[in-house]
Nucleic acid binder design. Structure first.
Length: 581
RNA sequence: GGUCCCAUAGCUCAGCUGGAUAGAGCGCACGCCUCCGAAGCGUGAGGUCACAGGUUCGAAUCCUGUUGGGACCGCCA
């Protein structure tokens, strides 16, 4: 239930009645009629643009339509006042009882308040993180993990059936490099001196993997040619890396539904089948690409390759799916992977990628468009870079210098809740600063603590109330007589709570979970504001000594606030704080 | 050369997928604890929404171009 859609329905009914009465011509398109909170609260609780949207097609003046519509709206019990303003806005002030009913509904529904059905149960696959299994997750992956997980939660809350999925790139040449690196650590564990050359990974995290290998094989592999151990070590190493990555994700509170292995596509005909289905559409051919403009690689020379005609589906150039030596490019298994997702019956695919994959989205979209015949959309959400700051200085990560900051570093230092909330205080397509000092700061400047503090305050006042013998169980609060809640600060808070269901829908529709974080910050602000008014006006304090009925009504408002904060934090994957010491 | 992203207060950023006088935090100036948690609240100053056109009742928001910053651009993944 969404108050705004309720009132919009009322507006549409009124317009229909006006048409019946001959006050409006028939057949007007009302799709653009919106009912929204006005920017300026002084304009009332809700505003509709109906008169302005319909004026032109109806051949009437907006203010004339508005006057008639306003008169009809005034007749509804939920609406206390209607004003026509500006070029033809209709501003509505709702009866206090409407807000009181919202509070009751919040308390009765609990953290399910705001759940929406706009997803209509359609099946969405959200693929995120999908880091190569060659090392620990770093800060960039952390952002993708938090964003993808929160996006999935928002969609779930809005009525989609969501699958969280991780694509394991365990099929390419980088896994050979990983296997060789582990072999070096294995030799080391057998007492040999080793050097990490040819781009092998020198990171410490492979030391225990080499030791585990030594524990299992003893010295049986020492001195053996690569051909004898490479396959085994690929599996051994990727298993070890994926264990580490799952642990990292678990530390952040991210749980995947599906881990999909790229390797499982090879040797099973699945890549060939996906490519074949494109070939049937005449989208595969042999050809030579133009050299890239601008900075041309030194060793560029024209070569004939097998190409995907992605330009037929919106890409800028056709893309190679097979190298000149006959091996698949990375793109080929990726096509097969998306082919597999489509075969699993999803209605919508979402890929969460890092900004460095920006050049990749058109070909992915082209592939999905071609494979699904345009029936299933692929949305790609790019997460821009995370800029690290430490002690007020930008902190440059370098894999070679071995000082890249891992997900585990971040979570260990600031905790999963703060990490997650902070990563969502910026929209995904803007770069994000991550300053260790600021993120740990406990003040209004840090939204995490500001929101948690509001929740803790509610818990605190409820503890006090119980000590004073006031029944603040949900049943008692929902039954409280709230007619005394009429102060503008109290109503402002209730109004903000009523926006929650609408906000969920907007966040889901736009795929922007950061909106939830900003909403919670605003909501907390409204609550803190009301709280502090209690300093000057004792009548506004939530706990009214000796007046159980009034206390219950005011605490119902606070409780509803805490419920919505819990629900919102739940979507972000953050645990609400009961107290902060 | 091309593609994608970004540009809003001194700083860091929101801005409801076109609405009214563009908002918050920090910083700055002043004020609020005998009182439910001051890790908080209030008041004030602060803007050519990068620039130039266009679309329409209406543009920070949509379109075109320009400038500046970032990411990426066959045989890596």
């Amino acid at each position: 239930m969404n108050l705004f859609t309720d009132i919009r329905a009322l507006v549409l009914d009124s317009l229909a009645a006006m048409t019946d009465a001959g006050a409006l011509p028939a057949g007007l398109d009302t799709a653009n009629v919106a009912v929204e909170p006005p920017r300026d609260a002084a304009h009332g609780d809700m505003a509709t643009n109906a008169a302005m949207v319909l004026a032109k097609p109806a051949g009437m003046k907006p203010r004339d339509i508005a006057a008639v519509l306003a008169a009809r709206l005034e007749g509804d019990a939920r609406i206390a006042r209607v004003d026509v303003a500006g070029p033809g806005f209709i501003n509505m002030t709702l009866a206090d009882g409407v807000w009181h009913a919202v509070l009751r509904r919040v308390i009765e529904a609990g953290t399910d308040f705001g759940r929406s059905t706009i997803g209509e149960g359609s099946r969405v696959n959200v693929e995120f993180v999908s880091a190569n299994p060659t090392g620990p997750l770093h800060v960039g992956h952390t952002r993708g993990a938090v964003f993808g997980d929160a996006l999935a939660s928002v969609l779930d809350f809005a009525g989609y059936e969501v699958t969280r999925e991780y694509y394991i790139n365990d099929g390419g040449a980088q896994v050979d490099v990983l296997a060789r690196s582990v072999y070096l650590r294995y030799l080391e564990a057998n007492g040999q001196d080793v050097a990490f050359e040819d781009g092998t990974y020198p990171g410490d995290y492979l030391i225990p993997v080499g030791q585990a290998l030594a524990a299992q094989y003893g010295d049986a592999l020492v001195g053996k040619p690569e051909a004898e151990w490479l396959d085994d070590l690929r599996d051994f190493a990727t298993d070890a890396m994926m264990h580490m990555i799952r642990d990292d994700l678990a530390a952040l509170g991210v749980e995947m539904d599906v881990f999909f292995s790229e390797k499982s596509l090879y040797g099973t005909g699945r890549i060939e089948a996906a490519i074949e289905s494109l070939r049937e559409k005449d989208l595969i051919y042999r050809g030579v690409l133009e050299p890239p403009k601008g900075k041309r690689p030194e060793d560029w020379e024209p070569r004939e390759q097998t190409l995907f005609r992605s330009t037929a589906h919106g890409d800028d150039v056709d893309r190679p799916i097979m190298k000149s030596d006959g091996a698949w490019t990375y793109f080929a298994p990726d096509i097969a992977y998306h082919h597999d997702k489509l075969s699993r019956g999803f209605d919508l695919l979402i890929d969460v990628l890092g900004a460095d994959h920006g050049g990749y989205v058109k070909r992915l979209k082209a592939a999905v468009s071609a494979l699904s015949g345009g029936r299933v959309p692929l949305e790609v959400k790019l997460c821009q870079l995370v800029k690290l700051w430490r002690n007020g200085e930008p902190f440059k990560m370098s894999k070679r210098a071995g000082n890249f900051v891992t997900l585990r570093d971040v979570v260990d230092q600031v905790g999963p809740d703060v990490t997650r909330f902070h990563m969502l205080t910026r929209k995904n397509d803007a770069a994000l600063d991550f300053d260790f000092a600021k993120v740990l700061e406990q003040s209004r400047e840090n939204p995490v603590f500001y929101v948690q503090y509001a929740h803790a305050r509610v818990c605190s006042v409820m503890r006090k109330a119980r000590e004073a013998g006031v029944d603040v169980d949900d049943a008692a609060l929902a039954a409280a007589d709230m007619s005394g809640l009429g102060h503008s600060a109290e109503l402002a808070l209730a109004r903000k709570l009523a926006e929650w269901p609408r906000l969920v829908e907007v966040a889901a529709r736009t795929g922007e979970p950061h909106r939830v974080a900003f909403y919670l910050y605003d909501l907390a602000g409204d609550f803190h504001s009301l709280w502090n008014l209690g300093h000057d006006e004792p009548a506004l304090r939530l706990l009214q000594e000796g007046d159980t009925a009034t206390s219950q009504a005011k605490i119902a408002l606070a409780r509803a606030t805490a419920v919505v904060i819990s629900a919102g934090l739940g979507i972000l994957g953050v645990k609400p704080a009961e107290e902060m010491r």
